[in-house]
Amino acid sequence: MLEVAAAVETAIPSTIDLRKKAVQFTLQKKQLTNVVARVGIVLDITGSMQPLYRNGTVQEVVERILAVATQFDDNKTLDVWVYDTEFSRLPSVTERELGRYVETHIMNNSHIHKFGRNNEPPVMEDVIRKYTEEESESDTPVFIVFINDGGVVKPIKKVITSSSVLPIFWQFVGIGQSDFEVLKKLDTMEGRVVDNANFFHLDAIERVSDEELYDKLLNEFPLWLKEAKNKRIIR
């Protein structure tokens, strides 16, 4: 009887497996199945985000974006940053390390500055540094998911503009009830070689289905890929 129960249990797909299938469906729909890209996530860890770290929402967000990374990245790896007034580049995550990633590497990590105010440019500069100075394949596309629950500082515009010549696409996701005044103007930002950033807002990311989330996440990335190839920013 125990053997039967164990067999049934192993036959039940895990949430990450179900999410990978949802990503695959979205990639097929958007004709992205042959794309190879590095994937990273930047997590707001300012004071107002504290409940989402404690109730498991951020852990779930990491899993949902890891599912994207498994389909784009040859190493099936998601790179991770957190930031408030300071930032930390954390160990990359794979399915093997996913389990209690947020609790282990963020909440129980005394070296991380947590729950202060926000300052986006330093962490963005570190993202740029990693993929353009430290990585050997510096022309591989990079898809960055940037989670933010409040207004960003205005100097973020300069970083986005200057990085428009680089193989990095910034997908900002606003969560909560802030007005996101700066991020709403990304599509009309002038002075860029290509449109390298997009923004959408979700009141409660934990209530959005995987299918809807992946559709929104990957809505403008294909357009950027085409433009960036035409400008020879990516191969």
Score class of each variant (00 low, 15 high):
S110W: 12
P141V: 04
D149W: 05
Y131H: 03
T132D: 07
V145W: 02
V102D: 00
R96M: 07
P155F: 03
V159Q: 13
S138W: 00
P91I: 00
F87A: 12
K130Y: 10
S162M: 10
E133Y: 05
Q171I: 07
V153L: 14
P141D: 01
S138P: 00
S138A: 03
M107Q: 14
S138T: 06
E86A: 10
G99W: 00
M107P: 04
E120D: 11
N109W: 13
Y101C: 00
V159C: 10
D84Q: 11
H111D: 15
S163N: 10
R129K: 10
E137L: 03
P121L: 08
S110Q: 15
N109S: 14
K158D: 15
M107H: 07
V152F: 11
K157W: 14
I106P: 01
L90I: 14
R96S: 11
H111C: 09
V159D: 11
S92T: 05
P91C: 05
P141Y: 01
G176T: 11
G99S: 09
E95T: 04
I156Y: 14
T85W: 14
H105V: 08
P122T: 11
R117M: 12
Y101K: 00
F169G: 03
G99V: 01
E86S: 13
N109P: 15
E137Q: 06
F115T: 03
I144G: 00
E125S: 08
T132A: 02
E103I: 03
P121I: 08
R100T: 07
S88R: 11
W170G: 06
G150C: 07
G174T: 04
V93G: 10
G150N: 09
E97F: 09
K130E: 09
E120Q: 10
V173A: 06
V153Y: 13
K158I: 11
Q171C: 08
Y131K: 01
E137H: 02
R89N: 10
L98A: 02
F115A: 06
N109H: 15
L166R: 12
I112G: 09
L98K: 00
T140F: 00
R100D: 08
T161Q: 15
S162K: 12
T94Q: 07
I160Q: 05
G116Y: 07
G176L: 10
N118Y: 04
N108Q: 15
T132C: 06
I128G: 03
G116T: 06
V153S: 14
S110T: 15
